[in-house]
Amino acid sequence: MDLFGDLPEPGQSSAAVKTPPAAAEEERRTKRSRGEEEEEEEGHEEQQERGKIQKVCKEGLPVFRGYVAARRGERDEMQDAHVLLPDLSVTSLPPHVSRVSYFAVFDGHGGSRASRFAAEHLHHVLAKKFPNGDPENMEKLIRKCLVDTFRQTDEDFLRKASSQKPAWKDGSTATCVLLVDDVAYVANLGDSRAVLCRMEQCDGQRKCVTLSLSKEHNPTIYEERMRIQRAGGTVRDGRVLGVLEVSRSIGDGQYKRCGVIATPDLRRCQLSAIDRFILLACDGLFKVFSADEAVRFVLDILQEEQTQDEEEQRFDSACQQLAGEAVRRGCADNVTVILLSIGY
């Protein structure tokens, strides 16, 4: 069962060539034969090598550094919020996991209370719910953890919002990257996005490939519109009831009865040394940049300043310039950008 919308493995393009059935069967036989010959030899070495293998894996993990830039644009209020936690303190970290990191962007609408609430509380819920089960079920447990975390954060905010006089009507998108050792899990609601810059070899040259790590949720998408209509809501002018631009969010209590949900879309991506950075941003950036343009804008700055500045300064400069360029191009919305460097 496909638990996540898995992305291509490092070194495998999204249009990977499939092995013909006959060749695949022959390859399986060869591997099986080779495995039987080596099984006995490897068996007696397995126990003494286990400690060494674990140590090598931990030393070979990527190092993540987050950089953020936020611009208010022409709005009266900054309604975005963000979180950068390179080392998330998990209540009970499983023995086979070395490190958990968390980075997130929240784009509020109708006010800033929902985005601020999600930024302050979602990762605490996640840390408490993070699975401590066996490695074989980890994928399934992480999926359940993320779905439950978003649901509880939404319920907690709606409970607080409804207790106010008058009731809060704020809502927020959410794009969260959970990094478990060298695997990225991305959970998102709404139209904030996450993309990965992967440097693949092509004809002897390194080529930048932009991979989407999230899925936009707006009421013009067929599946989203059908859910809203089944719940008794309507879509007019591309908006729920002609007002709300997104079909999934945290908060927006007045639209929950119309099919707006807080169930995130989930993606999983195995990271490796060919991955350069992850870019998280609210829709303010992507109103004036395509994903490819944003990634190449950052890469150009990193390459231009490579001989002049330290890596941290280069990434910070690229992040700041990207947000600034979005405003310069005429984006009147709030713009928040998180640039997450991946180093080995």
Rank of each mutant, 00 (worst) to 15 (best):
D2S: 14
D2G: 10
D2K: 14
L7M: 06
G11H: 08
Q12I: 10
V17M: 12
A24N: 08
E25K: 14
R28I: 05
T30D: 04
E36R: 13
E42V: 01
R50L: 04
P62L: 06
F64C: 06
A70V: 15
R72T: 14
M78A: 07
A81M: 10
V90E: 00
T91M: 11
V100M: 01
V100T: 07
S112K: 15
R116L: 09
R116G: 09
A118E: 06
A118I: 08
L122V: 14
H123F: 15
F130P: 03
P131S: 12
N137W: 03
R143Q: 12
K144R: 12
V147H: 01
T149P: 02
R151T: 13
F157W: 13
L158A: 06
R159Q: 14
K160Y: 09
Q164W: 09
A167E: 11
T175E: 08
C176N: 09
V183I: 14
A184K: 00
S192T: 13
R193G: 08
A194Y: 03
V195W: 02
C202R: 10
C208N: 03
E224N: 14
R225H: 09
R225F: 01
M226T: 13
T234M: 10
R239T: 01
D252L: 03
R257H: 03
C258H: 13
V260Y: 02
A262G: 06
T263G: 00
D265S: 14
C269F: 00
Q270K: 11
R276D: 04
L279A: 11
L285D: 11
L285M: 12
L299G: 00
E304S: 09
E304L: 07
E305P: 00
Q320M: 09
Q321R: 15
Q321A: 10
Q321M: 09
A326M: 10
R328Q: 10
V335Q: 04
T336Q: 07
Y344A: 08
Y344H: 12
